[in-house]
């Protein structure tokens, strides 16, 4: 049976992990490669690296980092953050990234999704969508959530699928950082509407939030950062709990 995926997300700045990641077993908690290895051996199904500097000058640093990660870890990983050019995607995939994610660039130039999926295949194109509910309507936001748009979430999600995205990574800005659970109502609507997988992001605080996002939110995968980085949730323990709720996971 295909299992539900648990995906730790690592924010990268200038080739280093940010946020106070704190594991006693790690020699250098700022080293993304060491952290990636730790997660790949601790039950993570995939990893996402989000480059939050993501300026042109930093692109070379990112490519170097992707190479080091690909050399070391034996599970799939996605790289995102400021990607807007075919040539960037080509370099990252050639260097060893399994998937790339695009966000703002796809909103500004939706045809980018068509061009990327035609060239590299849908399976490696993740479209990340940040959205916030305003006056009852989910609207997408750009630049890490800083810039609101008038684009409605579900119509954009459908368009993204039609243009050839292989997966959607949906972050609810209303839930992100709250540790109050994922946006399950919106997730379920999106997941049932689409034929491609949906990754839930934003709001993970405890184990039952993951159970809920798979059962109520119909998510195909769940992404989180701080609950894993601060050791609040151990991935193997989380998966055991999911199994008890008849949610298929890989242990």
């Amino acid at each position: 049976m295909l299992t539900k995926r648990i995906i730790p997300c690592l924010d990268i700045k200038n080739g280093r992990t940010v946020k106070g990641i704190n594991f006693e077993s790690l020699r250098d908690a700022g080293d993304p490669v060491e952290l990636a290895e730790y997660y790949s051996e601790s039950g993570a199904d995939e990893l996402v690296f989000l480059d939050i500097t993501a300026t042109e000058e930093r692109r070379d640093t990112l490519v170097e980092l992707v190479k080091s990660i690909a050399e070391k870890i034996n599970i799939p990983f996605t790289v995102g953050g400021g990607i807007s050019k075919i040539s960037d995607v080509e370099r990252l995939l050639r260097t060893g990234a399994d998937k790339i994610s695009v966000n703002s660039a796809a909103v500004k130039d939706p045809d980018l999704i068509n061009r990327l999926s035609a060239k590299f295949g849908s399976q490696c194109i993740v479209v990340a969508i940040d959205a916030k509910k305003t006056e009852g309507i989910w609207k997408i936001h750009l630049a890490g959530g800083k810039i609101p748009t008038e684009i409605e979430l579900f119509s954009w999600a459908r368009e993204v699928e039609e243009r050839g995205a292989g997966e959607i990574l949906f972050t609810s800005m209303d839930h992100d950082g709250t540790k109050n659970g994922f946006a399950n109502e919106a997730l379920a609507k999106m997941s049932e509407m689409l034929t491609i997988p949906v990754i839930a992001s934003g709001g993970a605080g405890n184990v039952s939030h993951f159970t809920d996002t798979f059962l109520k939110g119909k998510a195909d995968a769940a992404l989180a950062a701080s609950v894993f980085h601060y050791g609040e949730i151990d991935i193997i323990d989380l998966k055991k709990e999911l199994l008890k709720n008849n949610i298929p996971v890989r242990i």
Binding site: Q123, P197, D220
Partner: peptide, 11 residues
Amino acid sequence: DLKVPQIGWNQ
């Protein structure tokens, strides 16, 4: 009726 592509870990 399942999601396509199949993405993830299967047996």
